[in-house]
């Protein structure tokens, strides 16, 4: 059945944040930031999670890395459940899974030189002696398009795009298998963004990396991904190969999301689906389908019953009553 091995399998992952209130800080309820999602990421592919702010895509990324301890579920990394591993030994496994952040201004310690920043992951995992680490840092910085002379500079001497290159170098220097990119190019200017995307693609091929790309930018996701999962209010609404998702979106939410992207071709006048209302409060989600309050196709059943996540056609999963027999 499997031709390509799954690097990562996420099964029924849940992350609920308690809402505390009152003088005694008692738990008054839960924000279900990630509510029962499952997906698998194949070796050497780019799997993207898209959705609007608050849909749980970033929390999913952080829950996989246990930066937020998941409430429930399984995260299988090459067959081992990461959530069963003790904290201390998990720290050692972290070298195989790296995270790159959105904000190139706050993701690097301002008091460390680039050289120190690049050497730290190597020395933390004792992957190299100091000398070797220095050599590796020098190699890596050239791989991401900066020069050796810049090793002694501090982060504030670089522009946003250059800092993102440093973050990438720092993540890749330990030879990870999986890299989670959390809105990694969202803060960059258009002209810089494409440089970084090209770099990411080049490095993926060179180092045989598997990417989980988390983004709200559907254009960027389309360019980069092999498969895409669409999230809404902590749940997976649709999951398909990139071509299938963009050419034949099944879920009404995906359809609306795609039609909301401003066009850049003056000749293309597309029919817009403008959604009404806002994303509901995640601490008080609607019953049934999470999207039913804004869905143009909603019917009675949507309010009563949560749709199952089914494989409508090959490699194309969707959670919507319209497609349930």
């Amino acid at each position: 059945m499997r031709e390509v091995q799954n690097v990562l399998e996420v099964k029924n992952l849940k992350k609920h944040f308690p809402i505390k209130g009152g003088v005694l800080k008692r738990t008054q309820g839960y924000v279900k930031a990630v509510d029962d999602i499952s997906f698998a990421v194949k070796e050497n592919e780019t799997f993207s999670l898209v959705g609007e702010s608050g849909c749980g895509k970033s929390t999913t990324g952080r829950a996989i890395l246990r930066l937020h301890e998941p409430t429930e579920g399984e995260v299988l990394f090459k067959g081992d459940n990461l959530l069963d591993v003790g904290k201390r030994s998990f720290r050692l496994m972290r070298k195989d899974m790296q995270l790159i952040f959105q904000d190139p201004f706050s993701s690097l310690n301002p008091r460390m030189t680039v050289k120190k920043l690049l050497m730290e992951p190597l020395l933390t995992h004792k992957l190299a002696t100091k000398k070797e680490a220095e050599q590796k840092a020098a190699n890596m910085i050239e791989k991401v398009g900066l020069s050796k002379e810049q090793l002694d500079c501090y982060p504030h001497e670089f522009s946003g795009g250059q800092r993102q290159r440093i973050s990438i170098a720092r993540a890749l220097i330990v030879n990870p298998k999986l890299v989670i990119l959390d809105e990694a190019v969202s803060a960059l200017d258009v002209s810089i963004q494409s440089q970084i995307l090209n770099l990411l693609i080049k490095l993926q091929q060179e180092f045989h990396l598997t990417y989980i790309f988390i983004s709200h930018d559907l254009n960027v996701v389309k360019h980069l991904s092999d498969r895409v999962g669409v999230m809404y209010l902590g749940q997976m609404m649709e999951l398909a190969t990139t071509d299938k998702l963009y050419e034949n979106p099944l879920h009404p939410y995906t359809q609306a999301l795609l039609s909301a992207i401003p066009s850049i071709d003056p000749k293309e006048k597309k029919e817009r689906v403008i959604l009404q209302g806002d994303v509901p409060d995640p601490s008080d989600p609607p019953t049934g389908c999470p999207f039913q309050l804004r869905c143009p196709m909603a019917h009675e059943r949507c309010a009563e019953e949560k749709p199952r996540f089914i494989e409508k056609e090959e490699d194309h999963w969707v959670a919507c009553h319209l497609y349930e027999e």
Binding site: K95, M97, D103, T124, R170
Partner: peptide
């Protein structure tokens, strides 16, 4: 700051 989360993610 994200560099703290970053350090945690690296395994420091």
């Amino acid at each position: 700051n994200e560099y703290i989360t970053n350090a945690q993610a690296i395994g420091v």
